[in-house]
Amino acid sequence: MGIDWITVSAQIINFLILVWLLKRFLYQPVMRAMGCREQRIIDQLNETQEREQKAEETVQQYLEKTRALERECEIILARAHERAVQQKKQLIDDARKEVAEIREHWLRQAYQEKEEFLGNLRHQVANSIQKIAHTALKELGNAQLETQIIHLFIDRLAALDQESRTLLLKESEDTSEPLRVTSTFLIDAELRDQIKRVIHENLIKGIEIEFSQSSELLCGIAVTVGAGQLGWNLADYLNQLDQRVEDAFAPVASVASIEKSRE
């Protein structure tokens, strides 16, 4: 056992050389390679993370787009639905209007036909009644229809109630016009005198009386003073006949009234 200092010195130098050699050929290259690998792994991880982040962002973007498209789709569908509802309503309204127009046209036509029919009927009935009355009266007592009408009128004037008399009297005081006796036929002088006398005795004493002829009265006679009027007219009976005929057409009239209320 002993220490050879020359060997010691040589070994120190050898060791230092070995340190340098291993540093040069072992530690540095290995550490560099490991560092590079670590860096590469870190880079790959970072890259993966970035890609994942980008993928996540892309997914988010697509989700946003999908949501936007869904919203847009809902809006479009809502608009289409609204438009369809409006169009449906419009079509229904148009159809209803068209039906209403057709029905109104039909009702108007029916009403006109009814009016026309009633007018014709009235004239025919009046003429028929007049002819029948003439014939009947001639056969019964050789009396004229007009004379009979005037007599009937005179009787009515004589039996006139107090209220009507007061009304006519008041009308005569309010106006300066003369009392007018209107008839559809010509009244002879004798009958005129009878009429004057009855009026002066039962209605208004001393009032001026004018006689006139008018075709407005269908077949009758009337006394007019101011706004007051009193008379007998076959048209009254015909009006009653009209009323009855109209009552017979009541279903048509009721349909027309329902349609008017609907409008």
Binding site: T7, N14, L21, L22, P29, V30, R37, R40
Partner: peptide, 30 residues
């Protein structure tokens, strides 16, 4: 003098260096 201590030390050094050099000349960082 060149004794066995130094000679074998050189042998060990040569061996370590040679192996290191052989391996690290083709290092892969992958």
């Amino acid at each position: 003098s060149l004794n066995a201590t130094i000679a074998y030390t050189w042998l060990v050094m040569a061996l370590l260096t040679l192996i290191s050099w052989l391996v690290t000349r083709n290092l892969s960082s992958g």
